[in-house]
Design a binder for these strands. Structure first.
Lengths: 337, 337
DNA sequence: GACTGGCACTCTGGCCGCACGAGTGCCAAC
DNA sequence: GTTGGCACTCGTGCGGCCAGAGTGCCAGTC
């Protein structure tokens, strides 16, 4: 692949992203120092189109990048520019006042939405790499009880449980057993210990204990967190006309959180920033939008995923830089807190 | 106010709501059996316009209702039609599979969004009319602890607390005291007992106890729930062109949950359906949208508020009927569960 | 062989003008 | 109080037109 052709592609992508209009050969040489004439650029463009990196909406219009073009751009051309010290500082001050986990995530999602000018999503930390801090058992009514799981990341998960005939005394014993088995252990270790536990319980606790242990196991093993925070929805109004292609699918995805979580989860490998462009996306409704996501957490421990959702035509370098910076910062922040 | 003029207003509102286009005198007499000629209707329309109930977007166009017109419509003309048995049934089946509180509210908001075709909002039940089920104290780190409050409505509220120098023993005592003071009492009673408690604590618990009691008091007295569930956002795409007036303000409101909660809270009196039309709304950004809300709960106990947000041009009778039906059903459902 | 200037061609988008139709207000008549 | 008629006003849609931007190709130049 020719060096200059790459340069032309880069120019097309950046210009199109900022102007949102098909870009022609003449405008290109005017705005970039390519050192060649429009005619030459036209030849390159024809080649790029032949190879599927760009396309023209109609004859005698400028070119716009295809998904494949964007992909090449982010893979080979994107110089992820580090944030300015001012921005770093802004991130710091934005997060530093946070009170609890909810607050941290809320601030994070707003921050991310603001710096990227896109819709931002932050997944609640998963349990998988945290340890159990406490298990609480509460009677809700004569036939229902509530199991509450508290983890080292400060996350609280609750689940109701049908359970006939239990008295406070039994519950207290149950609570003690459950805590003894799990507290201080990672979720996988706790799960292992729990599955043994049900056999060791005194007979009067057997039935009730098995039910509780089973539920708790489920809570522990539900790897992906099922909650998330969303922010920056008003940014969608920037895509005025593109209702069907951009706004509607995104709103639907936000509604169907399951899809969104899956999407974010799939996109995450280690703590690198992952980009999914348009059709690379497994959900056909979102095929004209891109996902820029990153895991966040402490060192190699991935807590969860955060990222933004936007049109394929987005400023990838800036967005990727922002996502990476925020992910790193939040990860560090949570590990310390 | 003339009977026929009211009838004309009703006709204008219903036609405009369904067609979304200014309605003229001729079309009106064709679609409704008014028993008079277009000319007569024109006279009435002129009078209605004089009185501020309708207006014309430009000369020689049909009329559209003003906010004042809608207000008169809902006050005097809206026959809140009861839902069909089929719809009742649908509501029932939609909700009946719900597992816990979160699930109930999620299903509720989706249901409401679906039947009204608008953006739906369901507030989490407030604490004010529920009783304290349990208080849990958990150590997060050497300098932080977590207070968890569980209420009879199944709601779990948590708050972190800076608290230097505490050991498990102290915490256990603290937990016992807090529970003894609050469990089984309504939030107001519990609050009263808590404020006394801090003076009765043994000296070694005094400092820590006061901090915990204060936080707990705050949690109890935060009358309005600060959480909510939102659904039906994709319905916003139905308002294609009206970006600035409808979609953007709504998205912004959804983002600023505080505003939204306040809005819903203010709109609620007893368990009747309240309607706020356009400019009646205290928030100027939302002055071209209407809020239809209702409290929900058991009998006279209001748990919280639910409702929908939409353009002033909405089908008020249907929407009000749906909101009322869903509110009643959910209220009953929660009281039983 | 790679680049360039020139040229003919093809679209889209905006603009103008026009006619149509819907809707109104008024007035005179019933 | 109601009605039919009439003149008037505008917004909307349609057709035609032009300008501009952009392309592809080709022949010439370094």
């Amino acid at each position: 692949m020719d060096d200059r052709k790459l340069e032309v592609l880069r120019a097309i992508v950046t210009d199109y992203v900022s102007s949102q209009e098909p870009v022609g050969s003449k405008a290109l040489v005017e705005r970039h120092d390519l050192g060649v004439s429009p005619a030459t650029v036209r030849n390159d463009m024809a080649a790029l189109e032949e190879e599927g990196y760009i396309t023209q909406p109609h004859t005698s219009a400028g070119r716009i990048p295809t998904d494949k073009g964007y992909r090449l751009f982010v893979d080979r051309l994107g110089t992820v520019k580090p944030l300015s010290p001012a921005e770093q500082k802004a991130i710091h001050t934005f997060l530093s006042g946070a009170a609890d986990l909810d607050d941290v995530l809320l601030r994070t999602v707003r921050l991310l939405a603001q710096v990227t000018q896109q819709v931002a999503i932050v997944q609640y930390p998963t349990l998988s790499h945290s340890t159990v801090r406490h298990v609480e058992v509460v009677s809700l009514s004569s036939s229902r009880m509530l199991l509450i799981l508290i983890t080292s990341t400060g996350r609280v998960e609750q689940r109701a449980l049908e359970l006939p005939d239990h008295d406070p005394e039994t519950l207290a014993q149950l609570r003690a057993h459950l805590n003894a088995a799990t507290v201080g252990h990672s979720s996988s270790a706790a799960a292992a210990r729990l599955s043994v536990l049900s056999e060791e319980l005194p007979p009067e606790l057997s039935a009730i204990g098995q039910a509780a242990a089973a539920t708790l196991l489920e809570m522990l093993s539900s790897e992906a967190s099922s909650r998330m925070v969303v922010g920056g929805m008003p940014n969608l109004t920037r895509y005025g006309a593109e209702f069907e292609t951009t706004v509607k699918p995104v709103l639907e995805a936000l509604e169907e959180q399951v899809v969104l979580l899956k999407l974010m989860g799939e996109a995450t490998t280690a703590d690198a920033v992952t980009v999914r462009i348009g059709q690379e996306n497994p959900y056909k409704e979102l095929q004209s939008t891109s996902v820029v996501a990153s895991g966040y957490g402490s060192q190699l421990d991935i807590f969860a995923t955060l990222g933004v959702l936007g049109p394929t035509r987005m400023d990838y370098p800036s967005t990727m830089a922002s996502v990476r910076a925020v992910a790193r910062y939040v990860g560090r922040f949570l590990s310390e807190g």
